[in-house]
Design a protein around this nucleic acid. Structure first.
Lengths: 152, 152
DNA sequence: TTACCAAATGGAAATCATTTCTGTTTAGAG
DNA sequence: CTCTAAACAGAAATGATTTCCATTTGGTAA
């Protein structure tokens, strides 16, 4: 938690109860959450929690590098805790489709500047979904892996 | 054009003036378009063109493999012409940030099943942005490349 | 500690994208 | 040429996201 608050302060933002509550929630949940998920989870805890404030704060926490926005085909808005340390550069995340654990991918196979299909790469979006070690072990029969592969 | 209509027929859809107009537009524009872009471009041409119909058709054309939905960080809805031939399997696209030309990436560096950071990869989203050959040649001074790199 | 002010908050309301619904038209098979 | 499922237009509903504004608060400096 403290490392996250540090990121907040470092970017000149205030540490408020709301923000602590949101970070706390993500620490508990592990997985990715939509703004609506956040509202439901926090309603009742600290009185009401309006969606506008949640949108604002999710965006701010993302700017600070505390959260990141998960990339999905449908474009749904979902956030998760960023695994990169303070000041770390370009990276992606990999999410476990079973337990939603998030891993950091700091050495992406794609590097800006490299050639791909006749194009010189300038930027790239990568979102990986997989099975973390423990979940893979749990379901290491092929049929399970097959099924999981469907979900995308 | 004919190859695209073939994809429509192959999936049991009708070939209508609307759909031809949309495909025609994407053939002209080369780049990616939002539903709103499509409406603006087609308004006046063939009388009115309601947004609901555009949403429906963009989705249908995507299902048929004629279009694909571009992946963006913000989740904005944008579509472009898919470069894959009929029946081709898993692939991604690379978009030229200068001329918006789209290329097909059929052999992605990430393969489902491979290990990444201790996770077994099950699925992945990849969207590449770069400079196509001719645009790279045009602006092959480093400063231009530098600038372009900012835009993401 | 206290005062201060920019930043953060809550919540209503506005906005904007997207979907649903309904009645009408049309592509294309037979 | 007829017929039917699919496609169509457009109005309206829905739902997510943003804007606005009056109020409160975190955290710095006196």
């Amino acid at each position: 938690m403290e490392e996250h608050l540090e990121k907040l302060r470092a970017s000149g933002r205030k540490v408020t109860p709301r923000r602590k509550a949101i970070i706390q929630l993500f620490l508990q949940e592990q997985g990715d959450l939509s703004p609506q998920d956040v509202q439901e989870a926090l309603s009742g805890t600290t009185g009401q929690f309006g969606l506008p404030g949640i949108y604002r704060n999710l965006e701010i926490l993302t700017t600070c590098g505390i959260l990141f926005r998960v990339v999905t085909y449908g474009g749904e808005r979902r956030y998760a805790l960023c695994k990169a340390g303070h000041g770390e550069g370009h990276h992606h995340h990999i999410v476990c489709i079973a337990c939603r654990k998030v891993g950091k991918v700091s050495d992406c196979l794609y590097k800006d500047g490299m050639m791909v299909e006749g194009f010189r790469l300038v930027s790239h979006i990568v979102q990986l979904n997989g099975l973390c070690e423990s979940c893979a072990r749990e379901k290491n029969d092929l049929s399970a892996l097959q099924e999981l592969r469907q979900q995308g």
